[in-house]
Amino acid sequence: MTFEPKIVGILCNWCSYTGADLAGTARITYAPNVRIVRVMCSGRVDPTFVLHALRGGADGVLIAGCHPGDCHYQAGNYKAMRRYELLKRVLDQFGVEPARVRLEWVSASEGERFASIVNDMTDKIRALGPFKEAQG
């Protein structure tokens, strides 16, 4: 059986969750590997959530928020961006491949973009293999 990655998608309520919803209502077919957790803002995403997901069996984590400047809460996505920059470095030291944890901007109208990000991420993680196996 081929390995199917499990991806946790933590999406902001206003842009990315709506964008993902649009992908659905627009009947866009995309990889079913992403499992979505809604938060109010990408600025709500505590790096603990990402680590918790990886620990809990996820093979990848997608954080998605509004495009810079479009945050419903003005600047939450900038905080997500800052945390992600530092988290990336820390994850690198933990040996977590960059493809496993991504921060993307998806607006409410970008259903197709959401779908293509999920597809791309799924392909890349499928090539990497499961994360659990690499766990001690």
Binding site: P47, T48, H52, K79, R82, E85
Partner: peptide, 27 residues
Amino acid sequence: TDQGAKMLSAVASVVDSDDPAEVERII
């Protein structure tokens, strides 16, 4: 639960820039 993640989050949150390149440089 995870001291490192919390500290990371707190420190990164107060980096004083909205420009990705500058944030990367500071971090």
